[in-house]
Design a protein around this nucleic acid. Structure first.
Lengths: 259, 259
DNA sequence: CAGTGGTCTAGACCACCAT
DNA sequence: TGGTGGTCTAGACCACTGG
């Protein structure tokens, strides 16, 4: 039985209902994956109108407790385990076993990773990418766009950009699977020894495209990460643009205190 | 004059209105800081009811284009310039001029930084902090809680935690201003030479407390950063927990490709 | 088909802010 | 005080999902 709703309390009714439902979710009365009572049920149970119930459920949605599907209902979210992205995931020594960074990390976390290649081919460099590579705006570059899944649910979408002159040196970069150790191994084999990576981290709300690509609820935050791969000669030979569901990742960075 | 609203288009009316207003904002017809037409004005202009207008404005709010104040109206947001947080901001060499990291960075960005000290004193270590410092849960630690402003608007709230035994060695840690170079300089002067920092980055939606502390709109994303300061002996002598408005910061990290 | 969520209206009352 | 946004209702119709 639900808690009673105080008709006169200072708190809006829709928030009282949202809190009540949230408590039931946290207490396990509403288990992960189970259906939240339908709008009409909640209307009757608390004696409120549909609009009020909808605002309550909207609260649960933006709190990330619930996801709702038109015509089916709202369901308690079962969050996929959070994955860590460690700043040493691109160390050469980790390439020894031949795994690409993503697969190695995911498997270590006990998950079943999948990669879907969306596009490999030439594109005009977006402004930010061209700037980072020190190329003219709109210059032709190789794009490698792919979507990553863990246990079947999409978690991340990434696009790598490489200067066209670099890409044509390395046929494997046009393959869906660039081979053991990933594209960084291929770059280094072809004389582009890497000195460092520079990562830029932003967070923002997901765009509509990202909401559908990553199966998010509208209003969810994403982490937007852009990484430059810099050679010993100071040249940026790859820019990787990644968008991740914010609630599925934690990023770790080690920073030397140096002198 | 506003674009006409197609009564029959597939798109919901509230989204058409939201897009129309968003266009006016982006085109500068509605300038930053200016008032969005009141609900009743919009109702009349587009011939819709209040509920529809409210949903439209809610869209603009979650898109970060507008902020609304009860009894006053909705206003086009003027975003403070984005600030970069570089991973080398804690280098010892940067402490030579005596500035703390935050002030040095903000001034370099041409902004007027302010710090407000909220609390300095003992607290029971939160679980995550205790774990990182390898202390028993709830152990007494020194907390230094402060809020940072740039040009008067709050951008970030941070709490540093230090083991009580370390804190009592260093009287300056109980002062509002810990002196030239900040608390890291004090720690190193007292025999805690720092080897590295480990930063953990998450993004999520702001809690209600954060919404009010950082003057955000509900549903805004924040960046949550937790940093350990690790001595050469491997001891964590400080944990700094920071919450930033996501739209005001970009984080930069350099990662050695190493061997 | 019945049941679900999604949109919309017309009208009411309240809470906040300025004057 | 009048104007603003915030909550709520009762009822309507539409769009999607499932059996």
């Amino acid at each position: 039985m639900p808690n009673e709703i105080a008709r006169d309390s200072g708190k809006p009714r829709y928030l009282q209902i949202a809190d009540d439902l949230a408590d039931q979710i946290r207490a396990g009365v509403l288990a992960p994956g189970s259906r939240v009572p339908s709008e009409s049920t909640v209307m009757e149970r608390y004696g409120v109108s549909q609009g009020t119930v909808r605002k309550a459920v909207a609260e649960l949605r933006t709190a990330g407790l619930v996801e709702t599907h038109h015509g089916r209902g709202s369901f308690v979210r079962q969050l996929p385990p959070v994955r860590r992205k460690s700043s040493d995931r691109f160390r050469r020594s980790h390439r020894a076993n031949g795994k690409a960074a993503y697969l190695a990390e995911a498997e270590q976390a006990g998950q079943h990773p999948t990669v879907q290649v969306l596009y490999i081919g030439p594109v005009h460099a977006p402004a930010e990418v061209a700037h980072r590579m020190n190329l003219p705006d709109g210059e032709r570059v190789l794009a490698r766009r792919r979507r990553y899944f863990s246990d079947g649910t999409p978690t991340e979408e990434a696009t790598s950009y490489l200067p066209w002159t670099v890409a044509t040196e390395i046929p494997e970069l046009f393959d869906e699977n660039p081979g053991s150790g990933g594209i960084y191994a291929r770059l280094e084999e072809h004389g582009h020894a890497l000195a460092e990576y520079v990562e830029t981290v932003r967070a923002r709300l997901a765009t509509k495209a990202e909401v559908s690509a990553l199966q998010l609820s509208p209003g969810s935050p994403v982490i937007h990460l852009v990484r430059d791969a810099v050679t010993c000669g100071g040249r940026v030979v790859e820019v990787c643009d990644t968008v991740m569901a914010a609630d599925r990742f934690v990023l770790d960075y080690r920073i030397d205190a140096d002198g």
